[in-house]
Amino acid sequence: MKKVINDPNKVVQEMLEGFLYAHGNVYKKTPNENGIYIENEKKQVAVITGGGSGHEPLFFGFVGEGLATGAAVGNVFAAPTPNTIMEVTKAVDAGKGVLYVYGNYSGDTLNFDMASELAEFEDIHTATVLVNDDIASASKEEAHNRRGIAGDVFVIKVAGAAAAEGLPLEKVTEITQKAANSTRSIGVALSPGSIPSTGRYTFEIAEDEIEFGLGIHGEAGIRTEKIMEADKLTQIMMEYIFDDIEITEGDEVCILVNGLGSTTLMELFIVNRKVTEILLEKGVKIHHTDVNNYCTTQEMAGFSITLMKVDEELKTYYDKPAYSPYYFKRG
């Protein structure tokens, strides 16, 4: 493993220090724990996301105007503690309540649920929307067990926009849940990322093989194949999505082609070319496309395709302006 780090046990702390040197004019850090937030100046419902580190710019890179209000930052691939989540919660709550939006992993739900109980003791109302967009991680019948991957981006975007409209917690939750319900992703892995503190790789894969549906922490996928051309690969992935959610002529979608760390933008655009052609051929209208590295796993190679099926309501919130140093949307 080659990494540009100092003490492997201090990577999160040192990353945040460097992040704040760069963007301390926008962000604040909670005093005792690894929480990143912006001031809730307009006294709206606050949106908090979070999860393990190692996926940058998720999660704290999606704190910003029209996005999340705060992020609880865990150790590498480990959910943040209830104390961290609670500290961020207290920092951003303006008395309107807090919506937790995060990927559906046991560690995250345990810690966020515990924070939610602690928050109730302090009369802070919380609600939760779990992102479970990864269709490879469980069957359609077991969709509630699916993990969250790059779909976090769309769901956080919509949550932040709904909160910025000044809507009450119940309504922000309802719209955000709708975004989560409308979002599907599938990924493919080419080579693993490594964990700074152990120096180990997150999974093993043969040099000439790829794995469909492999999770962002190395969770096993659904199918291993020899490496193939981008168009064929994209075609297979799109079929998985179409088998899971009905997307037909006249429907509208937002696309995110997300790189996992070391796959180049060149490759991601080649994928997006095929994704777009397949959709247009079906008569599907593309509302917006994003090609970027948002949800990464260190130096892992591979990518995911995310589609969010949008109606007028979701489009309204998706189209609102948003800004962070790692994500922007013009109004």
Partner: peptide, 12 residues
């Protein structure tokens, strides 16, 4: 443990 570990193990 709850305050420092994180992950599922910290809570459990």
């Amino acid at each position: 443990m709850i305050g420092n570990m994180g992950g599922a193990s910290g809570v459990l």
